[in-house]
C-alpha cells in the first residue's frame, strides 16, 4: 500500500492543469443566463474590491485635516464622481442580491428535485427560480441606481 506522501506525489504529478483560465471566463460561446450571472458576480466583486481599497485610502484624508478632506471632495463630488458612485451602487446591489441567490443555491434551496436525464437533458437545477433570481438582482440594481442618481444629482 502506498504511503500518503507517495499518493500525494502520484496525484500531483498526474493532475491536469486548468489551461483555459481567464479565456474560459470570457468565452461567449457558452453563455446562458447562469453563466452571465457567474461572470457578473466575479466582475462586480473585483470592481467593488478595487473601489473598497480606494474608498479606504480616500477617506484617510480625514486625518490630515479639513483642507485635505475638501481637496478629496473636490475630486469625487463631481458629475463624473457621481456617475462612478451610481456604478458602485448598481454593482454592489447586483453583487448582494445575486450573492443571496447563490447562498440559497449552495444550500440546495430552489434547485428542484433530481430527475431522470431525459432528452433534451435540461438540468432541473437551472430552472425558473434560478433565472428569476438573476432577473430580480438585475432589476434591483437598476432601481438602486435610479434612486442613487436621484439623490446624488438632487443638489445640482
Amino acid at each position: 500500500m502506498k504511503s500518503f506522501k507517495e499518493d500525494k506525489i502520484y496525484w500531483d504529478s498526474n493532475r491536469r492543469e486548468n489551461r483555459e483560465g481567464l479565456k474560459a471566463w470570457l468565452n461567449p460561446s457558452r453563455y446562458g443566463w447562469e453563466r452571465i450571472s457567474y461572470w457578473l458576480q466575479r466582475l462586480t466583486g473585483v470592481f467593488l474590491l478595487i473601489y473598497f481599497v480606494g474608498h479606504v485610502i480616500e477617506t484617510s484624508s480625514l486625518v490630515d485635516g479639513k483642507d485635505a478632506w475638501n481637496a478629496m471632495l473636490e475630486l469625487t463630488q463631481t458629475t463624473w464622481g457621481h456617475l462612478f458612485l451610481i456604478l458602485v451602487i448598481g454593482t454592489s446591489t447586483f453583487h448582494s442580491a445575486n450573492g443571496i441567490r447563490l447562498l440559497f443555491t449552495e444550500t440546495g434551496r430552489g434547485l428542484g428535485k433530481p430527475g431522470r436525464p431525459d432528452y433534451p437533458y435540461s438540468p432541473v437545477s437551472l430552472n425558473y427560480r434560478q433565472k428569476s433570481g438573476i432577473w430580480i438582482a438585475l432589476i434591483l440594481a437598476a432601481t438602486a441606481m435610479l434612486y442613487g442618481a436621484n439623490i446624488l444629482f438632487a443638489g445640482e
Binding site: 493532475r15 492543469e17 483560465g21 473585483v46
Partner: peptide, 16 residues
C-alpha cells in the same frame, strides 16, 4: 473581498 479575490485567482491556475 480578499477571499473572493483568492477564489477567483485559484480558478485561474492550480498548483501548490
Amino acid at each position: 473581498g480578499f477571499n473572493g479575490l483568492r477564489i477567483i485567482l485559484l480558478e485561474f491556475r492550480q498548483n501548490i
